Structure formats: structure tokens, C-alpha cells
Amino acid sequence: TEEFVRLWREAVRHNQTLHWNGTDFIPGDEWAEEFARREEEKL
């Protein structure tokens, strides 16, 4: 979602874990980066 992408970019900028829907998205984590890339492509 647009909100997820916005929060993810913020988390990456501050190198912080994003807690989203009970899942931890960690900047630099391969799975999280791939998920975020797919979400961005949907926008």
C-alpha cells in the first residue's frame, strides 16, 4: 500500500525496523527489500 511504502522509506532512511501487520520489515533484509520493491511497483 501507499502507506506501507511511505513508512518503509522512512524506516530505511533512519535504518529502523518497520513493524507492519505483525511483521518486522528490516532495512537490508533481502525478503523485506523484495516485498517493498513489489509494493512500490504497484503504485
Rank of each mutant, 00 (worst) to 15 (best):
D24N: 10
R38I: 09
G28C: 08
V5P: 00
R37I: 05
E30T: 13
H14I: 13
E30W: 12
A11W: 05
V5R: 04
E3G: 07
T17F: 06
R38H: 10
A32T: 03
R37Y: 05
E41H: 11
A36I: 06
D24W: 13
E33G: 04
R13Y: 12
H14M: 15
D29S: 09
D24T: 12
L43C: 14
E3N: 10
F35H: 06
E39A: 15
P27C: 10
V12M: 08
T1D: 11
R37H: 07
A36N: 02
A32L: 03
T23L: 15
I26C: 11
A36Y: 08
W31R: 08
T23Y: 15
A11P: 00
D24R: 08
G28D: 03
N21E: 11
R6V: 07
V12Q: 10
E34V: 06
W20R: 02
P27D: 01
G28E: 02
E40G: 07
F35N: 01
E2D: 11
A36W: 07
V5S: 05
F4L: 02
K42Y: 07
E41C: 15
K42S: 08
E39V: 15
L7W: 04
L18Q: 01
F25R: 01
L18M: 08
N15W: 10
T23G: 06
D24I: 14
T17V: 15
R9M: 09
A36P: 00
E39W: 13
D29M: 08
E2G: 11
H14T: 15
D24S: 10
W20L: 05
W20S: 01
E39T: 15
E41K: 13
D29T: 11
E10N: 08
G22R: 04
W8C: 06
R6A: 07
P27T: 02
F4P: 00
A32S: 15
E10Q: 09
F25K: 02
P27N: 02
W20V: 03
R9K: 13
W8R: 01
E41F: 12
D24Q: 10
K42I: 07
F25N: 01
W20F: 10
P27F: 03
H14R: 15
W20M: 03
R9N: 09
I26E: 09
D29K: 04
E10G: 01
W8M: 02
R13A: 15
D29Y: 04
F4V: 00
R9D: 06
E33R: 06
N21R: 15
L18G: 01
V12Y: 05
E39F: 14
D24L: 14
G28F: 03
T23F: 15
R38L: 11
R13W: 11
T17G: 05
F35C: 09
L18P: 00
E2S: 13
F35T: 03
I26Q: 12
K42T: 06
E34D: 12
R38K: 13
A32E: 00
A32F: 03
G22D: 07
G28N: 04
H14Q: 15
H14N: 15
A11L: 03
T23Q: 15
A11N: 00
E33M: 11
A11D: 00
R37L: 08
Q16V: 14
L18N: 01
E41P: 02
F4K: 00
E10S: 04
H14D: 11
T17C: 14
L7C: 14
F25C: 06
T23P: 01
I26Y: 09
H19Y: 08
F25W: 04
V12G: 01
F35P: 00
E40T: 11
W8A: 01
E41T: 11
E39K: 09
E34L: 10
D29R: 04
R38Y: 07
W31T: 06
T17K: 10
F4T: 00
K42W: 08
T23V: 15
E41W: 12
E10A: 07
E41Q: 14
T1G: 14
R13P: 00
E3F: 07
L18I: 06
E39S: 13
E34Q: 13
T17L: 09
L7K: 09
N21I: 05
R13V: 11
E10K: 07
H19E: 05
H14P: 00
F35G: 00
E34Y: 08
N21V: 04
E34I: 08
E40H: 09
F4R: 00
T23R: 15
A32R: 02
E30R: 13
N15T: 05
E30D: 12
H19T: 13
F25S: 00
F35V: 07
A36M: 08
P27S: 02
E3A: 12
K42D: 03
E33Y: 05
D29G: 03
E33Q: 09
R6W: 10
E39H: 10
R13F: 13
H19I: 08
R37K: 11
T17N: 05
F35K: 03
F25E: 01
L18F: 09
G28I: 02
H14A: 14
V5Q: 04
L43T: 06
Q16G: 05
E30K: 14
N21T: 03
L7D: 02
G22A: 06
H14F: 14
V12N: 04
Q16N: 09
D24Y: 12
L7S: 06
E3Y: 08
E10M: 08
E3S: 09
T1V: 13
R37G: 04
E33T: 07
H14K: 15
E33A: 07
A11C: 15
E30Q: 13
N15L: 08
E10R: 07
T17H: 05
A36K: 02
G22N: 10
E39P: 02
F25L: 10
W8P: 00
R13D: 08
R37D: 02
A11F: 04
F25M: 07
G28W: 03
A36Q: 01
L43P: 03
D24P: 08
E30L: 14
E40S: 10
R6Q: 07
N15K: 12
V12C: 02
W31H: 06
P27G: 02
F4Q: 00
T1P: 14
P27R: 02
T17S: 08
A11S: 06
G28Y: 02
E40C: 14
W20K: 00
T1F: 11
D29W: 04
I26T: 15
R6S: 05
N21K: 14
R37E: 04
K42V: 05
D24V: 13
F4A: 01
L18V: 06
L7A: 12
W8K: 00
W20H: 04
Q16P: 01
W31I: 07
L43G: 04
W20A: 01
H19V: 10
R9G: 07
Q16D: 05
E34S: 11
T23K: 15
F25Q: 00
E2A: 15
N15I: 04
R37P: 00
G22T: 02
A32V: 03
R6C: 15
N21P: 01
I26D: 07
R13I: 13
L18H: 01
T17D: 01
E39G: 05
R13N: 09
A32H: 02
D29L: 06
E40W: 13
T23I: 15
T17A: 12
N21F: 13
A36C: 09
E33L: 07
A11Q: 02
A11E: 00
L43D: 04
A11H: 05
R13G: 06
F25V: 01
H19C: 13
N15A: 09
D29F: 04
R9Q: 11
R37W: 04
A32W: 04
E3K: 07
E33S: 05
E3H: 08
R38Q: 11
R37V: 04
R6I: 08
H19A: 06
L43K: 04
R37N: 05
H19N: 11
P27A: 03
K42P: 02
V5Y: 06
W8F: 02
D29H: 08
H14E: 11
I26M: 12
L43A: 06
F4W: 09
A11Y: 05
L7T: 01
L7H: 06
R38T: 08
R9L: 11
I26N: 11
N15F: 08
L7N: 05
E33W: 07
I26R: 14
K42L: 08
E3V: 10
D29C: 13
Q16W: 13
N15D: 06
N15S: 09
G22K: 05
E10D: 11
N21A: 12
F4D: 01
F4E: 00
E2L: 14
W31C: 13
G28S: 04
W8I: 01
K42E: 04
R37A: 10
H14Y: 14
V5K: 03
I26G: 04
R9P: 01
P27L: 04
E10H: 09
W8G: 01
R38W: 06
G22L: 04
D29P: 03
D24M: 11
V5D: 03
G22E: 05
F4Y: 03
E2H: 13
R38A: 11
A32G: 03
R38N: 09
W31G: 05
G28R: 03
E30S: 13
A36H: 02
I26W: 06
L7F: 05
E33D: 07
V5G: 02
H14W: 12
F35I: 06
F4I: 00
R9H: 13
E2K: 12
R6G: 04
E41R: 13
E30M: 12
